[in-house]
Design a protein around this nucleic acid. Structure first.
Lengths: 194, 194
DNA sequence: CTCAGGATGTATCGGCTCGATACATCGACG
DNA sequence: CGTCGATGTATCGAGCCGATACATCCTGAG
């Protein structure tokens, strides 16, 4: 569909290219370093994405510095086009489910420095309520079937719930920090305990 | 390929059907209750999987009790065949990467009560070393680029690392418990330090 | 009593992503 | 001089998801 629900990679690529021009291999390394434990994209998704972005005119081939050509092996360096920058701004404004689902939240978060404060807050809160919904539904399902489950399954449930509860606590801290930061408008010589 | 690396659903379905015969809808509910926060399968994967299993002769249609037919709406109840049971035993013996990767570990774990003690231990240890590898690679990558990262990315990295470290600790406890349990058989007075 | 909405139920389609794989070149090290 | 690992681009098959469609049953509000 033209929607583009799961197109996290698009944001990831456009966002990475915002700073510097890059070629596929390097792009992947940077991306995976940026996202750390959160997720790792493979070539199987990266290269098709680059082609698609190229066809859409959101990125373009950028000639590497002449010096690099001499000794360098064949590489294709991409840069962001004007349309690409526009699209990136667009994606950074998205604050709906596509920004707080499991697969995409981390990518949006990783580019928060380019995101407006209000959007950041909405994404954070959206993710939190998403997790709390899941927590609720799993907890009630668990309460209903608890006695029929063996100890391994119970242990899995417990660990899963705790992990998510931990993420909710993390989100709460982040939200509190965001709120505090946004309330700090022009503040002259009062005690700013930064 | 005939390999079957990512065929977690197959194990999940076969394992669920081991206890009772079930139809798709109920199967999905049970599965999602069983796996809790860990993961949720959709119909888009469940029904194709059921068909494939049926074609392979691993499951078969089971006539529901006549009483249920009268008032019941159309449902297709599946049961495990002899070959299915065999295949299930086979899958429960797998202790390689397919049992400890992110997407599959939880499913294998959820059926641990049907798994041999030795296999359980190997899966647990395999997952632990898998996570430790990732931890290492992310930590070194992070150390190399720390100063170039903004505070949001750093925060994401920190949270990600802590989550995985937490899972490693959890695995350590489980492994210790497993070891303790397996050392409880007839033990004469030799110091067998593995 | 009626009808709408929600749970139960089966099924498919498009699309994304991964893992494996195939090439090819470069630098380093023995 | 050979080979091994990092660099680099690219594709393919397969698994899984989300959305969607369609049909029946039950419940409860009007």
């Amino acid at each position: 569909m033209a929607g583009g629900q799961g197109r996290v990679l698009e944001l990831a690529v456009l966002g990475s290219l915002h700073e510097t021009s890059l070629h596929g291999y390097e792009l992947r390394k940077r991306l995976n370093a940026l996202l750390g434990m959160f997720r790792a994209f493979s070539y199987g998704s990266l290269y098709p994405c680059l082609r698609s972005l190229l066809e859409q005119g959101l990125i373009a081939e950028d000639q590497p510095a002449p010096a690099a050509i001499v000794g360098g092996r064949s590489k294709i360096v991409y840069k962001l086009t004007a349309e690409g920058k526009e699209r990136l701004q667009d994606l950074l404004t998205q604050a709906g489910p596509s920004a707080w689902e499991d697969e995409s939240f981390g990518v949006h978060f990783a580019f928060f420095r380019h995101t407006e404060a209000e959007v950041r807050l909405r994404i954070l809160e959206g993710r939190r309520s998403r997790l709390e919904e899941r927590l609720d539904s799993v907890r009630t399902a668990l309460a209903r079937t608890r006695e029929r489950l063996d100890s391994y399954t119970l242990e899995l449930q417990r660990h899963g719930l705790e992990s998510v509860e931990r993420e909710v606590r993390w989100l709460n801290e982040l939200i509190a920090t965001e709120r505090r930061a946004s309330q700090e408008p022009v503040r002259d010589t009062t005690s700013t305990d930064e």
